[in-house]
């Protein structure tokens, strides 16, 4: 049996009065590629923050790699790209390489200094996102999309077992989005890295992912991709709140 990497049981969450997540049960297992979809404000980022331990659930349990979140200390196993990565101070004096290498901090451990090998590791991660030519550039001088690719490299640098990404392709051009997704496919298929990806590019990603989770305050669907494809158009649109277009089956009846 495959090991559960993320395990949420009956999780509730609210910001002050506003209930954002209700009775969420959600499990990601070793080697799976999950697409987490849902309209704006449906609680996707909140759920991600709970999984990563940035927010505490009001109720319910969160386990990572089989351990309760409070007792989970192997954070080097997780690579993370946040939704608002490029909100950092743009005057920050750091090169692309310095930023990517900082993704190795936890893995190195306290009191160890970065070596040449760490530099090579960071360069390798930059090659994956095709940003190695920019290694010595100042991070603030890159475009938003280029910065986002650097943050993806930072998440990949430590060779994590689980990649959690909140809309990582925002601001990245179409060609690079395509190569980014094929890279994710490779990381998942060849290296067996589990992926949890929040996205609004539904038609693209539901084709690529092995599993799909549909969130809108509660979990409306979660399961393998082939089952998701069988759900009819109307019921998806109903919980999504507005008509949703899907590739293949729905061609021709595109709404909005």
């Amino acid at each position: 049996m495959k090991k559960a990497i993320i395990e949420l049981t009956d999780v509730n969450f609210r910001y002050e009065q506003r209930i954002v997540l209700e009775h969420i049960n959600f499990t990601v297992k070793d080697g799976e590629f999950w697409a987490l979809i849902g309209p704006n404000g449906s609680g996707k980022s909140t759920l991600i923050n709970i999984i990563l331990g940035l927010l505490k659930p009001e109720q319910g349990s969160v386990k990572l790699f089989g351990e309760d979140l409070e007792h989970f200390h192997h954070r080097e196993l997780i690579g993370y790209v946040s939704q608002k990565s490029n909100s950092f101070n743009s005057g920050f004096p750091a090169t692309v390489l310095e930023v990517v290498r900082s993704g190795l901090t936890r893995k190195k451990g306290l009191f160890k200094r970065f070596t040449k090998k760490d530099r090579e590791q960071a360069m390798k991660a930059l090659e994956i996102v095709q940003m190695d030519d920019f290694a010595e550039q100042n991070i603030g001088e890159l475009s938003g999309g280029q910065q986002q690719r650097v943050f993806i490299a930072r998440a990949l640098a430590g060779e994590p077992k689980l990649l959690v990404m909140d809309e990582p392709t925002v601001g990245i051009d179409q060609q690079n989005v395509a190569s980014f997704y094929s890279m994710l496919n490779r990381l998942n298929g060849e290296h067996g890295i589990a992926i949890l990806l929040v996205t609004h590019e539904i038609d693209l990603v539901t084709e690529l992912a092995t599993h799909v989770a549909c969130l809108n305050r509660s979990m409306h669907f979660h399961g393998v991709q082939s089952d998701y494809q069988k759900i009819d158009h109307q019921s998806i649109s109903k919980w999504y709140g507005h008509p949703v277009r899907r590739l293949h089956q729905d061609e021709g009846e595109v709404a909005e």
Binding site: G53, L54, R75, E76, I78, Y80, A94, E98, S102, T105
Partner: peptide, 17 residues
């Protein structure tokens, strides 16, 4: 290295422990 990551991205420093 800890001070660098804390300065550059405090949230990421929390997530990565």
């Amino acid at each position: 290295k800890e001070l660098f990551i804390l300065s550059f991205d405090a949230e990421y420093s929390k997530v990565s422990g």
